[in-house]
Design a protein around this nucleic acid. Structure first.
Length: 661
DNA sequence: TTCGATTGTC
C-alpha cells in the first residue's frame, strides 16, 4: 500500500480527544480498505508532540499526495499513552510539518520575480495554452509577494496573447492597481470587465472600495458603497461592510463606523472578528480604550465571537499607549492562559517598543529574548524599536552597533529605522553623523520622508546652522514632500531659538495654511519662542488670537505664556492667568507650578513661593531641575526661611537627592 | 470544495 500523505484533524472534546484522520492515498489505491495502524499511532503521537493545540496538521511521509478517503477513528485516552518503540522510530524516520495548507502547485509556489517570469514565459509557449486558472495562480502568488506592478504586467500580457481572463484574473489585476494607489486604473479595468463579458462580483467591488479607502477618498468610497446597495449591483457582504468601516475609522468616524456595524447586524450580515477588530483597533489608537473594551465585551459575550491575536494586540497597544501596565499584563495573561492565544511578532514588538519609549531598554531586550525563545523571529520593526530606544537614551554606539548588525540578520532597515538614528545623532548634536546617515537613506535606494527632513531641520537649527536648514527645507519641497504641522513647528521653533522671531512670524502668516494656522501646538511654539526672545507683545497678541479663532489653549500654552510673563517680571499677570486655568477647564499641572514658582522666586515673592510650595506638596508634585536650582540658591543666600526646608526636601526630585553635587 | 476581497508592530 502506497500512502504518501495524510491529513489529520484534531477535535478536542470535553470528555476526551477524537482524531479525525483523512488519509490521502495515491489514485491507484483509491479503494483500499483499512488504513494502517502505525500511521494512526504516529498521528496520535504527533498530536501529543504538538501539545494538542494544533487543530489541523499535515503529515507528509514521502513524495506526492493524491486522493481522498475519510476515516474517523475515535481514540480512547488510554490509547494516547504511547508504548511502542516502533512508533517512535517511525516518527523519527519521518518529518512532519505544522503547515495545514494543501500542497501548492508550481504556479503558486513562485518565490521570486525571476521564477515568475521564467514560468510565465514557459507557459505562454505551450500549445495549447494552460488554463486561465494556472495563470491566475501565478498572478496570485506574485501579488502575495507584493509584486503588484509585475503581476499587473503579466496580466496585460495575458490579455495581449488572448488568455481568456475571468473574474479571478480581473479581481487580482484590480487589486494590484488599488494596492499601488492607482484605484482609477482599477476602475478602468472594471469598465473592461463589461467589454470582456466578465460580470464583476462582490470581490471586485470590495477591492475597489478598499482602493478608495487606501487613497483616503472616503467620500467616493461612501458613494460607491451606497451605490452598490441602492442599485443592487451586488449584495454587500461582511468584507464590504468591514472595508467601509475601515474607511470610516481612518477618518476618525468611530461612531459612524459602530453605526455601520449595527446596520450590518440588522440587515442580517453576519458579524465577524475582523469587523470588530477594525473598530477596536481604531478606538485603541484614538486612546478611547474604554469604548474599545465595551465593544470587545459585546463581541465576546453578546455575540459569542472569539477574539484572536489581532484583537488582543490592538488592546495591548492601546493600553501601552496609556501606560496602563497592570492591565497590559492582565490581558497578556488572559489571552495566553485562558484562551491559549500566543502573542506573535507584532504583539511582542509592541511590548518591546513600549518599554523602549519608557526608557526601559533592558526590559525591551528581555522581551525580545523571550520572543526568540518562543520561536518567534524578530523582524525589522522589532529591532527598529530597539534602535530607537537606544537613540532616545543617547546611547548612539549601541544604536549604531545594532543597526549595523541588521544586514547580517537578513533585515533591511526602513526609513523609519534611519529616522531614529537621525534623531539620536541630532539630539546628541552629532550633526555630521546625522547628515551622513541622511545621505545613506538615498544611497540605499530609500526615500527620506517628512520625518527624516523634519528631524534634520531640527538638528541643523539646534546647532545654529539656519542657512543649511533653509537649503534642506527647499530641497524637501523640491522632492514633492509637503511639510506638515510638525515640520513647521520645528522650523518656527528653530527660528525663534536662533533669535529670528520676526522671520518665524512672517513665515507663519505667509503659509496661511488653515491646518497650520489653527494648530495649538504651532501656536504654543511661537508664543514660547516670542516669550524667550523677550517679545512679550508678540506672545500676547498670539495668545489673544487663540480666543478669536476659537482655539482652546492647552496646559502647555498656558505654561509658556506664564513663563513669558514671568520673564518680563509681570508676575501678578502671570498669577492671574494661572488662576484662570482651572475655570477654563485646563487645570495647571506639575510643569505649570514650576514655571510660576520660578517667576515668584526671581521676583522675590517669598510669601507666594511658600503658598505655592504648600499647594504642590498637597498635590504630590515635584520640583523640576531649574526650579530646584533656584530654590537652593535662594536658601543658600538666606532669603528663604529655613522652616521651608523640610517641605522643599519633600518636593525635591529623587535624582537630585541621590547625587549631591 | 484545488485562482480573487477586510484587521494588529517601528
Amino acid at each position: 500500500m502506497k500512502i504518501e500523505a495524510c491529513f489529520l484533524t484534531f477535535l478536542t472534546k470535553p470528555h476526551g480527544v477524537s482524531v479525525g484522520v483523512r488519509v490521502v492515498r495515491s489514485q491507484e489505491y483509491k479503494n483500499t480498505d483499512q488504513f494502517p495502524s502505525p500511521l494512526e499511532e504516529a498521528a496520535t503521537m504527533m498530536m501529543i508532540r504538538t501539545n494538542s493545540l494544533l487543530h489541523h496538521a499535515f503529515f507528509k511521509l514521502t513524495g506526492i499526495l493524491i486522493t481522498n478517503s475519510l476515516t474517523t477513528t475515535p481514540l480512547s485516552s488510554s490509547r494516547l499513552g504511547l508504548e511502542s518503540t516502533l512508533l517512535a522510530s517511525l516518527l523519527h524516520s519521518t518529518s512532519f510539518s505544522n503547515n495545514d495548507d494543501p500542497p501548492l502547485s508550481r504556479y503558486q509556489k513562485v518565490s521570486s520575480l525571476d521564477d515568475a517570469f521564467n514560468l510565465f514565459d514557459e507557459m505562454i509557449q505551450r500549445k495549447p495554452l494552460p488554463s486561465v486558472i494556472k495563470f491566475n495562480q501565478l498572478l496570485s502568488a506574485l501579488t502575495k509577494l507584493n509584486h503588484f506592478s509585475c503581476s499587473l504586467d503579466l496580466f496585460k500580457q495575458m490579455c495581449a496573447i488572448g488568455v481568456p481572463v475571468d473574474k479571478y484574473s480581473m479581481s487580482i489585476a484590480i487589486k494590484c492597481c488599488c494596492q499601488m494607489s492607482r484605484t482609477n486604473d482599477g476602475f478602468a479595468l472594471l469598465a473592461s470587465c463589461f467589454r470582456r463579458a466578465v460580470v464583476p462580483d462582490v470581490f471586485v467591488f470590495n477591492t475597489l472600495l478598499d482602493g478608495l479607502v487606501i487613497e483616503n477618498r472616503i467620500a467616493e468610497a461612501e458613494r460607491l458603497f451606497k451605490k452598490l446597495i441602492k442599485q443592487k449591483i451586488c449584495e454587500p457582504n461582511v468584507v464590504t461592510y468591514s472595508t467601509m468601516i475601515k474607511g470610516l475609522c481612518k477618518f476618525g468616524n468611530n461612531d459612524i463606523a459602530i453605526g455601520l456595524l449595527r446596520l450590518m447586524d440588522e440587515r442580517g450580515c453576519k458579524l465577524n472578528v475582523v469587523a470588530y477588530n477594525i473598530i477596536i483597533d481604531s478606538l485603541c489608537k484614538d486612546k478611547m480604550i474604554e469604548d474599545a473594551f465595551k465593544l470587545f465585551n459585546e463581541m465576546v459575550f453578546a455575540k459569542g465571537i472569539q477574539p484572536d491575536v489581532i484583537t488582543y494586540t490592538s488592546l495591548i497597544y492601546g493600553l501601552c499607549n496609556l501606560c496602563r501596565w497592570d492591565e497590559v499584563s492582565k490581558l497578556l495573561k488572559e489571552m495566553e492562559e485562558d484562551l491559549r492565544i500566543s502573542p506573535d511578532v507584532k504583539t511582542f514588538s509592541i511590548l518591546a517598543d513600549a518599554f523602549c519609549k519608557e526608557g526601559r531598554v533592558d526590559e525591551a531586550e528581555a522581551v525580545i529574548d523571550i520572543m526568540v525563545e518562543r520561536g518567534e523571529v524578530p523582524n525589522i520593526v522589532t529591532y527598529s524599536s530597539l534602535v530607537d530606544g537606544y537613540c532616545l537614551r543617547g546611547e548612539m554606539t549601541k544604536a549604531r552597533t545594532l543597526f549595523d548588525s541588521l544586514t547580517s540578520k537578513g533585515l533591511v532597515p526602513t526609513v523609519i529605522t534611519y529616522n531614529s538614528l537621525l534623531n539620536g545623532y541630532c539630539k546628541s548634536l552629532k550633526i555630521e553623523e546625522a547628515m551622513h546617515m541622511f545621505h545613506e537613506i538615498t544611497r540605499k535606494g530609500l526615500k527620506p520622508d517628512i520625518v527624516s527632513y523634519s528631524t534634520m531641520l531640527q538638528g541643523l537649527f539646534r546647532v545654529g546652522r539656519c542657512g543649511a536648514a533653509r537649503k534642506l527645507f527647499d530641497e524637501m519641497r523640491s522632492q514633492g514632500l509637503i511639510p506638515d504641522e510638525y515640520t513647521y513647528g520645528v522650523i518656527l521653533d528653530g527660528l525663534c531659538n536662533n533669535r529670528q522671531v520676526e522671520e518665524a512670524l512672517s513665515l507663519f502668516h505667509l503659509v496661511g495654511d488653515s491646518k497650520l494656522n489653527s494648530d495649538i501646538v504651532v501656536y504654543t511654539i511661537l508664543i514660547e519662542g516670542a516669550g524667550k526672545c523677550g517679545k512679550l507683545d508678540i506672545a500676547k497678541t498670539l495668545f489673544h488670537d487663540l480666543t478669536v479663532k476659537g482655539l482652546q489653549p492647552d496646559v502647555r500654552t498656558y505654561a509658556v505664556m506664564i513663563s513669558g510673563l514671568c520673564g518680563k517680571g509681570l508676575v501678578e499677570e502671570a498669577k492671574q492667568l494661572f488662576l484662570k486655568m482651572d475655570e477654563s477647564g485646563c487645570p495647571p499641572n506639575n510643569a505649570t507650578y514650576n514655571v510660576l514658582l520660578q517667576g515668584y522666586l526671581k521676583k522675590k515673592k517669598y510669601d507666594d513661593v511658600e503658598k505655592l510650595l504648600q499647594e504642590m506638596d498637597g498635590r504630590s508634585y515635584s520640583l523640576d531641575a531649574s526650579a530646584s536650582a533656584l530654590l537652593i540658591d535662594r536658601i543658600a543666600a538666606g532669603s528663604l526661611y529655613r522652616s521651608l526646608l523640610k517641605l522643599i526636601s519633600r518636593l525635591m526630585p529623587k535624582e537630585l537627592m541621590e547625587t549631591p553635587s
